[in-house]
Amino acid sequence: MNLRFFSATGFSALALAASLSFISGCDQAPGASRAEVVERPDQITDFKTLYTQNCAGCHGNDGRNGAALALSNPVYQAWVDDATLQRIISQGEPPTQMPAFAQSSGGMLTDAQVDALVKGMRTAWPANGAFNGLTPPASQPSGQSDAAQGQKTYQTACAQCHSKPNQQVTDPTYLALVNNRTLRTLIVTGRPDLGHPDWRGVVNGQVQPGYPLNDQQVGDIIAYLNSLRSDTPGQPYSPHSQQ
């Protein structure tokens, strides 16, 4: 066995080993994972994909810090029932900007996909005893509400924060874009990502004066806010500039 022959076999063995390891390692090459199956858009039932494509625009990544309600708020998830989620996602919530997503209402999602969203929300954003043993105001209004009483409650419970000029929830333009459901949801479940408290009124560990709110009080505040609605909301110039 001369040296030439030896180096030749050595070389080919090396080449063989290299190509074998290449071939076996190749299925782990980054390119392999790029060959994912593209599902039909109406077959997608992965919650993350559905949520990111359809909801994140308004409700924020991870269901918070969005322009619309924080869906991942555990208090909200504990408070809302599946049927309501199902209905609002399918049919929208007129006259708010929440669109209807079910195909039966002109949207793009199948009923199975709406289901997947509801189920996915429950798993991704668990409620985990968010009520701490307290009972929140109901999700449906009950009994008679009193706007005058509501104004008083508003003064104690809300005005401390909402009298600042740039936090006016009493602005008729704002009120024209929301409905009673929006207000009830916001007052009861809060927007922790923005610093707006839920019905217990806890801010920085301190219960605010006037809290917690009961069912009656929530109804009253909504009645009060409704009494501020205008027949011609959203006129572009503030009244004093038109005088």
Partner: peptide, 20 residues
């Protein structure tokens, strides 16, 4: 419209009307 989130910095410090 439904997938691109309004950047959080534009959501905070807005009045309720502006956020709407």
């Amino acid at each position: 419209w439904s997938g691109a989130t309004v950047p959080a910095k534009f959501v905070h410090n807005l009045s309720p009307t502006e956020r709407q």
